[in-house]
Computed example of a mutant assay.
Amino acid sequence: MTTATRRPTEASENPFALSHLDALEAESVHIFREVAGEFERPVILFSGGKDSIVMLHLALKAFAPAPVPFALLHVDTGHNFPEVLAYRDRVVAEHGLRLHVASVQEFIDAGRLRERPDGTRNPLQTVPLLDAIESHRFDAVFGGGRRDEEKARAKERVFSLRDEFGAWDPRRQRPELWALYNGRHAPGEHVRVFPLSNWTELDVWQYVEREGIELPAIYYAHEREVFARDGMWLTAGEWGGPKETERVEKRLIRYRTVGDMSCTGAVDSGAATNADIIAEIAASRLTERGATRADDKLSEAAMEDRKREGYF
């Protein structure tokens, strides 16, 4: 009997080779340090969602033992999940970070924005975001967007130039060969930076498991009162749901992504641990936004249209 020849693993071929998570982490850390060296007033968008949590974890690693040299910015729609806001405030206090909050509700109260008929405030974040960037003179804004989330985000570079109105023009994308990032921008312009651009949802969860990162409990299976709308399970709230014809029921669910309660759907799931979620995602054929974000279903180019207006 002939013994089958087994192909050597990457580690046996090169004992110094990085794992795929180590390689992604090293790339992200490099991006954070590159921005710290190139820009004067960077800021990290932090919502308390899993991607922004991983991004902050990487920033803490990049500059340890020194503190993170950037402030945090959260665009609060007023319809955020209470569990996520509580987590946000706890993390900010724990690490002694500076948090700026741009409130959609304040802009509505001031007459600068109007409520949408559907109650969704996610598209209303653009004006408060651009106002905060201008008033604080931020020249680089970190976001947790990943290329696997949505096709418009797949088009964007790690360093994404925005014009003086905060708008994104795909034709102004710059080449990023050999991990060389061009941060040049004219007065009034700024750069959006995506340290997780090359990560996938599965990578994020594997990294959360490896690093032992705490996430809001909303990401894990729990019983919750929800109602069905447009093929998604939504949480009832003051934002306008449910309608008289929509029945509230208690289900075992979890959230794959976290945003405005009015457009972020839950999925039926019994995944209560990181290992369970990793197995669930590995078997899924839908992206997290494709499965759970109503604001991306408004049109084929919904995300790209918002990005051209200044959205993240």
Rank of each mutant, 00 (worst) to 15 (best):
A4K: 10
P8F: 10
S19T: 12
D22S: 08
A23K: 06
E25A: 05
G37Q: 08
I44M: 11
G48F: 01
G49A: 13
D51N: 14
D51L: 11
I53P: 00
L56N: 05
L56M: 15
H57P: 06
L60R: 08
K61C: 11
K61E: 14
P65M: 15
P69V: 15
F70G: 12
L72I: 15
H74T: 14
H74M: 14
D76W: 07
T77I: 04
T77C: 05
P82H: 14
V84F: 13
V91A: 03
A93K: 08
H95C: 06
H100I: 09
V101T: 06
V101C: 05
Q105H: 12
D109F: 07
G111E: 09
P117R: 08
T120F: 01
P123W: 00
P123M: 00
H136D: 01
R137Y: 09
D139K: 00
F142E: 01
R147I: 07
E150S: 11
A152R: 00
F159A: 01
G166S: 12
A167C: 10
D169Q: 08
R171Q: 13
L177Y: 15
W178R: 12
N182R: 11
H185K: 15
G188R: 03
E189W: 06
S197G: 14
N198P: 07
E201Y: 11
L202Q: 07
L202V: 11
D203R: 00
Y207S: 05
E209S: 13
H222E: 06
R224W: 09
V226R: 04
W233I: 02
L234S: 00
W239F: 08
G240S: 06
P242R: 06
T245A: 12
R247Q: 13
R251P: 02
L252A: 09
L252Q: 15
G259R: 00
C263W: 02
D268L: 11
A271I: 12
N274T: 14
A275N: 09
I277H: 04
I278R: 01
A279S: 05
A279N: 03
A279L: 06
S284A: 10
L286K: 09
E288K: 09
R289C: 09
G290A: 10
A291G: 07
A301P: 06
A302L: 04
E309N: 02
